[in-house]
């Protein structure tokens, strides 16, 4: 009798185990997982357990949302290992809405299929598929930053057009040094830039939000072209000698300042991708180009990038020398 009862209990437990196993396999409990990370500007649209979709298929969920020391949001995505080979470098994470009023889910794109598959622990970029209300919120700082940019550009314009200023004097030096060829190129660039400024001043008059954004993108592209003209000039200077280094450094400092302002604008524009197709991508590409150019310039001898040996403490603030010039 006891043995029969024992068999019966064993059978029940076996059935339970089988049931548990079937459920576990179907819900991928035992499937191998991998982790990806993303740092969106805010965690407000996310929650732990939120599904992650790839091409409409659920491939994992949000495992953890953390606020790091620097105030940066870090979201850990726990995804099924079998889909890892389908996700390549360049993949981005975005929020997508299921239907017009549906819940937002986390989407992930394929990335560049020519590149390698993503590794466990990789960081992905975050892109917002902005909703209409978000667009309106985002447009405000964009217009504000456009004003910052305009004032920066206005200052730059005054500086460039000062007949006794460093730029004009520097250009005279450059012309003498590079037999007019590169000097003419930078002069043409400056003229083009001045025309762009005139356009921007016109934009300042009518602050129709969409137009501002569109015209800013155009200006960003033109600015990048100008920087493109400056770059070969720096190379030719490298062969000729360092006598006008100071003037070019001045110019670079202004370009750097400008790129900072453009960065703000591009950051805001990039939030509007879906509603203003192509615009943010274009701006971002232009900005990346500009950054690359600036980096190469900073590494050139003009800014002492290739100089070895002496240690410089650039970037650290120094107290004024206190000369006490009382008569």
């Amino acid at each position: 009798m006891k043995r029969k009862v024992g068999w019966f209990v064993m059978l029940g437990i076996g059935a339970l185990i089988l049931l548990l196993l079937i459920v576990s396999v179907r819900s991928n409990v035992f499937a191998k997982k991998f982790y990806l990370f993303v740092s969106p500007p805010s965690a407000s649209a996310f929650h732990e357990g939120q599904p992650v979709q790839f091409q409409g298929f659920a491939i994992g969920h949000i495992d953890q949302i953390e606020l790091q020391n620097e105030g940066q949001v870090r979201i850990s995505l726990r995804l099924l290992e079998r889909y890892r080979q389908m996700l390549h470098q360049g993949a981005v994470v975005h929020l997508v809405k299921e239907g017009l009023l549906g819940e937002q889910v986390v989407g992930i794109t394929t990335g560049d299929i020519k590149k390698e598959a993503l590794e466990n622990g990789a960081y992905l970029e975050f892109e917002t598929e902005a909703s209409l209300e978000q667009l309106l919120i985002d447009l405000k700082p964009a217009v504000g930053n456009a004003n910052v940019l305009l004032s920066e550009l206005a200052e730059l314009s005054v500086w460039m057009n000062d007949p006794y200023g460093d730029l004009r004097a520097g250009m005279a030096g450059l012309r003498g040094m590079s037999a007019g060829v590169q000097g003419a190129s930078i002069e043409a660039a400056v003229q083009e830039f001045t025309q762009t400024l005139a356009k921007l001043k016109h934009v300042a008059v009518d602050l129709d939000e969409h137009k501002v954004a569109l015209r800013l993108a155009e200006s960003l592209e033109k600015t990048a072209n100008i920087l493109g003209n400056i770059e070969p000039l720096s190379k030719s200077l490298g062969e000729s000698g360092p006598s006008t280094v100071q003037h070019v450094n001045e110019l670079l400092a202004h370009v750097d300042e400008l790129s900072g302002a453009l960065n703000l604008v591009a950051a805001d524009l990039s939030q509007m991708t879906p509603e203003l197709p192509g615009l943010a991508r274009e701006s971002r590409a232009t900005l990346a180009e500009m950054r690359a150019m600036l980096e190469s310039l900073q590494n050139s001898w003009l800014l002492g990038g290739s100089k070895q040996g002496e240690v410089k403490l650039e970037g650290l603030e120094t107290a004024p020398p206190v000369l006490d010039m009382q008569p």
Binding site: V29, F30, A31, K33, Y35, F37, Q68, N69, E70, Q72
Partner: peptide, 16 residues
């Protein structure tokens, strides 16, 4: 023990 093996936390801290 089956479930425990799967949960591997990957730490990529930003240290300053």
């Amino acid at each position: 023990s089956c479930g425990g093996g799967q949960h591997k936390s990957v730490n990529v801290p930003i240290v300053k």
